[in-house]
């Protein structure tokens, strides 16, 4: 009998396009977990976060990237996400460490990432995003959860003209379509 090998399928199948000089790529990651801080355990969680990822726990709507490239961002008072692009020991070492303080939920299959990049990226995003994207308000490394074209989106600013957008994988097709249309219309 032939040996079966399970292969992960990404929500957008490695989507990559240039539309109106804007580069739109699927941002691929190995795993995405959410961390919830148990009531009155913030101090313990802060210490644990530093121990597990080597960086201090970010403030609300801020992020960290550690030396292995793992991205951590905080959405609310007691709620964070950690995204692992490709670090191999994340699931075996980092997650069990985080579990000692946080409530953890694996959300890898629930989200898809899209990286948008280009000189006119702000113009494209302004058409679908209700946030103020000026760098004074939304600086590099900032993260916000918002709504774009009726879809729940987490937006992370990598550089002045580069963003990563996380959206539910179940509606990733609609989301990429609204990004494409918005890019065409600038």
């Amino acid at each position: 009998m032939a040996k079966l090998v399970l292969k992960i399928e990404k929500p957008l199948n490695g989507y990559s396009k240039v539309v109106n000089k804007l580069k739109i790529d699927e941002y691929q990651f190995d795993s995405l977990i959410s961390l919830a801080i148990p009531l009155k355990r913030e101090r313990k969680c802060k210490l644990n976060f530093k121990k597990s990822l080597g960086e201090p726990m970010p403030n609300i709507e801020n992020s960290i990237i550690n030396k292995s490239g793992i991205l951590g961002f905080r959405i609310g008072i007691d709620f964070l996400f950690v995204c692992n692009p490709s670090h191999s020991s994340f699931t075996k070492k980092t997650v069990p460490l985080l579990k000692q303080a946080f409530y953890i939920t694996d959300q890898t299959g629930g989200w898809c990432g899209v990286r948008v990049e280009g000189d006119r990226v702000i113009e494209m995003l302004e058409r679908i995003c209700p946030l103020n994207l000026s760098q004074k308000i939304f600086a590099i490394g900032d993260v916000k959860r918002t709504i774009m074209d009726h879809l729940n989106v987490i937006i992370f600013r990598e550089t002045e003209k580069k963003f990563i957008l996380f959206s539910p994988s179940s509606s990733s097709g609609s989301f990429i379509k609204s990004i494409e249309i918005s890019s065409r219309n600038i």
Partner: peptide, 11 residues
């Protein structure tokens, strides 16, 4: 109070 001005469509 924590996040600043946000559009009411988020609420």
């Amino acid at each position: 109070p924590l996040l600043g001005l946000r559009d009411s469509s988020e609420f």
